[in-house]
């Protein structure tokens, strides 16, 4: 393993940590807008530590949804971390129960993407731990900034925040719909459009939040895999 490769990995990890920090500010503000206090926002960032699930939880609660609907949305979005874990297990190869419990907490979109993109196993492990550490620090610190900054905003600032939350979800969704972020952007767009239509159509008829969980039926629009074998 060469030193330039090591420092490139570390530099990428820090860059990603800073970028993710901006989402942390948006999350802290969204949590405040949803009626969570600073401690609850911080608990989510420290314990849940999975951006899309956290946004979903506060998004459903903020829209007036029930706690079970909010928890259900967060867990559904959390299932992809299980798949990441399966992919990461051979690379991380945790030897002890404690090591596995610790590594699991940082198995998220960004750490998995960085680790699997690394040229070799050693750099993959470095990418996982370095990315995990910088994102964990940045995400939690910026959540605090966002939650404190958003409390006590006036009407116009509140309107700005109301517009920020759906835009943040759109920014989380967008890369999944592009050729750069997905193997099947066409199918992803079909599913996304279907999910939005199902959610809007159900809004007048079901308790708030339930339409978000129900939108998962749109996954059926993906159709069968194009090939039987999936590249890992």
């Amino acid at each position: 393993m060469s030193d330039p490769a090591r420092s490139r990995t570390l530099r990428d990890a820090v860059g990603l940590g800073i970028a993710v920090g901006f989402y942390g500010i948006a999350f802290g503000a969204a949590a405040d807008a949803a009626g969570l206090d600073v401690w609850q926002a911080m608990t989510l960032s420290a314990l849940m530590f999975s951006g899309a699930s956290q946004f979903a939880l506060v998004g459903v609660l903020g829209a007036g949804g029930s706690a079970p609907a909010a928890v259900g949305s967060a867990l559904l979005l959390g299932t992809r971390n299980t798949v990441y874990g399966v992919r990461m297990a051979p690379l991380l190869d945790p030897r002890t129960v404690l090591g596995r419990a610790g590594a699991a907490h940082w198995v998220i979109d960004e750490t998995t993407a960085m680790a699997v993109a690394a040229p070799d196993r050693e750099l993959g492990r470095l990418a996982f731990w370095a990315t995990g550490a910088t994102i964990y620090l940045g995400w939690n610190a910026m959540t605090l900034v966002g939650a404190l900054g958003a409390s006590g905003l006036g009407g116009t600032a509140q309107a700005a925040l109301d517009a920020v939350v759906p835009a943040a979800f759109l920014a989380l969704l967008w890369p999944r719909l592009t050729a750069a972020g997905s193997a099947e952007p066409g199918a992803q767009r079909r599913v996304a459009l279907g999910g939005a239509v199902v959610a809007l159509a159900l809004t007048p008829f079901v308790p708030v939040g339930v339409q978000v969980i129900a939108a998962v039926v749109a996954v059926a629009l993906a159709g069968r895999p194009r090939t039987a074998e999936r590249a890992a």
């Binding site: 979903a56 979005l77 992809r80 989380l172 996304a192 459009l193 809007l200 708030v208 978000v212 998962v216």
Partner: peptide, 22 residues
């Protein structure tokens, strides 16, 4: 699992952007 985020995030975009209560 590959497609769940697209469906849920799009639903959240729609619900957060276009609805108030029911």
């Amino acid at each position: 699992v590959d497609f769940v985020p697209a469906a849920l995030l799009a639903a959240l975009v729609a619900v957060q952007g276009l609805t108030t209560e029911d």
